[in-house]
Design a protein around this nucleic acid. Structure first.
Length: 314
DNA sequence: AATGCTCTCAACCGCTCGCAT
DNA sequence: AATGCGAGCGGTTGAGAGCAT
């Protein structure tokens, strides 16, 4: 059973917005803000529109920081990646692309990227497929999308290692030290927090080995049964080179097991092909990363990392 | 020039979620 | 605990622009 309409559709204007309406809404929001109440806004702003319509118009079109069109190759990759990782959660995907809206990303996917993916589907590369099947296998153990363990690396000196396998659920936020269920702080350099409830946390400790940006097509190409994108494409774009790392992607929010190189956090090769990249970027503040589970987080702390990378962690 | 088809994207619809009561 | 309400989300629609015939 659906809810009651938010406004009387018969009495409000619908359809395309006129420049005058745009200006009314723009000037009202500029001077008053939304007030956290979109339902009441149209009347206050002198608009004969449904509040929902006003909200959509503002968020998707009138906001000053909106970018329209002109998607870059890097943005494409991010969308591919995130779509593969989390599916059609457009608001989450859009949040990784400054200036983009969920509606815009959704439209872009439906009209352009999906076709691009399907075109790739007809050009499979056996060698990649084999490797990607491996990714796929591991990816399935990560299901839950972005709901893996979120790890914030802290600069506190290493303490005796304790298992953080039972982290308290916590809102995803950087620079927080999680505690175990017994209340012990996991202060051995890594504080891990699970976004999902513990029961949702994948049990298998195996780590995926691809970066989150190139991963989209990689995992998808593996034909992952749980991946929507996987049904569409079978070929991964090449890994991102150090000199074209998307400027809009910060290391602040990287799903680390995907960022690191191939394998299971091999000692001495933690970052696989991305070591040089990360070293180049060591000036960035790596404040929060995602791991699929606490074991992965622990492996991170004990693994060799590019010099300087941890230096700037908070 | 006229017609039909395809594509794009702004806008709508219906639902879930979270908060307040 | 139950209920109501608004915000937010993702899927879908349809008008209009562009292109092909």
């Amino acid at each position: 059973m659906g809810r009651a309409p938010c406004c009387d559709k018969a009495s409000v204007k619908r359809g395309p917005w006129s420049p005058e309406e745009d200006e009314l809404l723009r000037s009202y929001v500029r001077s008053h803000g939304t007030g956290g109440n979109w339902i009441a806004l149209p009347q206050k702003a002198g608009l004969n529109r449904c509040g929902k319509s006003c909200r959509l118009r503002w968020l998707n079109y009138l906001r000053p920081d909106i970018k329209h069109g002109g998607y870059t190759e890097q943005e494409d990759r991010i969308i591919f990646s995130l779509y593969n990782s989390i599916g059609s959660r457009w608001s989450v995907i859009a949040s990784r692309l400054p200036g983009r809206t969920d509606n815009d990303v959704k439209n872009y996917w439906n009209t352009k990227l999906k076709k691009k993916a399907m075109a790739m589907h007809h050009q499979p590369q056996p060698q990649q497929q084999q490797q990607q099947q491996h990714y796929h296998h591991q990816r399935q153990q990560h299901r839950g999308g972005a709901d893996g363990a979120r790890v914030t690396l802290v600069s506190t000196p290493p303490a005796p290692q304790s298992q953080c396998a039972s982290m308290q659920p916590s809102p995803a936020s950087a620079s927080s030290v999680a505690t175990t269920t017994s209340g012990d702080a996991c202060s051995f350099g890594v504080a891990a927090m699970y976004s999902p409830s513990p029961s949702q946390v994948p049990q298998a400790p195996t780590l995926a080995g691809y970066n989150s940006v190139a991963a989209a097509a990689a995992a998808a190409a593996a034909g992952a049964q749980h991946s929507p994108l996987a049904e569409l494409i079978c070929q991964a774009p090449p890994p991102i080179a150090a000199d074209c790392w998307p400027s809009c992607v910060t290391l602040d929010d990287v799903f680390l097991p995907e960022l690191v190189g191939a394998g299971e956090f091999p000692n001495g090769n933690l970052f696989g092909g991305f070591g040089p990249l990360l070293q180049d970027r060591s000036s960035l503040e790596l404040s929060a990363c995602y791991f699929p589970n606490a074991l992965a987080a622990e492996m991170w702390t004990s693994a060799d990392k590019p010099a300087g990378l941890c230096h700037s962690l908070t």
